[in-house]
Simulated assay, not measured.
Amino acid sequence: MNLFNQDVDKGVDWGLLAKKAIRFSNLTLEEGMAVLEADDVELLPIMQAAFQVRHHFYGKKVKLNMIMNAKSGLCPEDCGYCSQSIVSTAPVSKYSMLDKESLLAGAREAIARKAGTYCIVASGKGPTDRELDQVIDAVQEITRTMPLKICACLGILKGDQAQRLADAGVHRYNHNLNTSKANYPSITTTHTYDQRIETVKMAQSYGMSPCSGVIIGMGETNEEIVQMAYALRELDADSIPINFLNPIPGTPLEEAQRVSPIQALKVLALFRFICPSKEIRVAGGRELNLRSLQPLSLYAANSIFVGDYLTTEGQEITADHQMIEDLGFEIEMCALSAV
């Protein structure tokens, strides 16, 4: 008896999971595991069920986000996946926080790429007050003159820093959980999982929309992936970027195996079932892990990054726009209006 027949015998009904998700009824651990461990012949039924949930909350709209690597390298953290960390020997650009004009130029490029959210990302454990001043100066100008939402990702924040970002007009703050609590010590030792949880909650408490996601492929078990989805549901993260590890030479995880395209799609479906009404974004590693199956990802996810990531290249922008058009989907433009 193959796994497909075993799943049927166990009564796995993907359509039922979709109905539970739409009603905000929690999947059990066993149901979550069933998604990740289903036979590959079940992929299309799983994606169809995920699309039912995605379509219920988002229709055929796709949100676009663009990253600006505002400060690169020079990081004291030892995150095993990151080419910018202190333990990495990967050849990456190293520069301090970009000036206001560079950040404004990035915002204009985000608009040209049809992105509704502009993500200002900086390496480091957390921003200095001077770095925060530079970001805030640019954010105030962007929010005053351009139809963009701003997401900041600057590391661990102090309360007064979170307040200043919110007051400046930062709509969303990103701080990824990255992996499970149990797996966290094997990925980084210079900060804790709980500190990440606290930062997400702090951003939320000051009125910024919480954005937090994961990196799949760092030695976590399937059960831990389900637990990661539960944790983000508990955090009430509005936006959930799902990254797939791109093993970069010179980093501690350079020998890790990439997630297969089919398994990556099952992960996206799982997060859609567990966090049904949230923005699920296919993020870093999309091109290398999903490869030719990239279009299928948007049957579960409703958001992607366009352009390059922090230190790795993304898909050419016209290819992303064409992929969305070919699917019969449409880009969701930012609802804000320029002054």
Rank of each mutant, 00 (worst) to 15 (best):
L103P: 02
V87Q: 12
E198R: 05
A105E: 10
R108S: 08
K125R: 13
G213H: 03
S72Y: 07
K149Q: 14
A112L: 14
V139R: 05
E77N: 04
Y173V: 00
S93I: 15
K114M: 09
Q84V: 11
M202W: 01
K181F: 07
S72A: 11
S186N: 12
E131I: 01
K158P: 01
L177M: 06
P127F: 09
R196E: 05
S212A: 12
T143G: 14
G159V: 00
S85Q: 12
V170E: 03
L74H: 01
A105F: 12
V170R: 11
C82P: 05
T128M: 03
T145E: 05
H191I: 03
L104W: 03
T190L: 13
G155E: 03
G124I: 07
A166W: 10
A70N: 08
R130H: 00
A203V: 08
Q195C: 05
I142C: 14
I197S: 05
S212W: 10
L157F: 14
A203F: 03
Q84G: 10
V200R: 05
A162V: 05
G169I: 03
V214K: 02
R164T: 08
T199I: 02
A70D: 00
Y184S: 06
I142E: 00
Q204W: 04
H175Y: 00
V135K: 02
L154Q: 03
L148Q: 07
C151G: 13
D167S: 12
T199S: 05
G80L: 07
N178W: 06
A90V: 03
V139D: 01
G213P: 04
A105R: 15
C211E: 11
Y95M: 11
S180T: 01
D194R: 09
T179W: 06
I187T: 10
C151A: 09
G116T: 09
G80Y: 07
Q195H: 01
K71H: 00
S93D: 14
L132Q: 04
S180V: 00
Q163G: 13
I136A: 04
T117A: 11
S209V: 12
Y193Q: 08
V135Y: 02
Y95D: 06
N183E: 03
P147I: 04
L132K: 11
A138W: 03
Q134T: 02
E198V: 04
T192N: 09
D167F: 15
Y193E: 01
C153P: 02
K125F: 13
H175W: 03
K100D: 07
Y184I: 02
G207T: 11
S83L: 12
M208F: 13
I136P: 11
T188C: 15
Y95G: 14
N176S: 06
C151K: 08
S93L: 13
R164I: 06
L104M: 09
Y206I: 00
K71D: 01
P76E: 05
S96M: 13
T143S: 15
T143D: 07
G159L: 02
G159A: 08
E109S: 10
E109H: 09
D167H: 08
H171N: 15
M202K: 07
Q84C: 12
D129N: 12
P210G: 08
A166C: 11
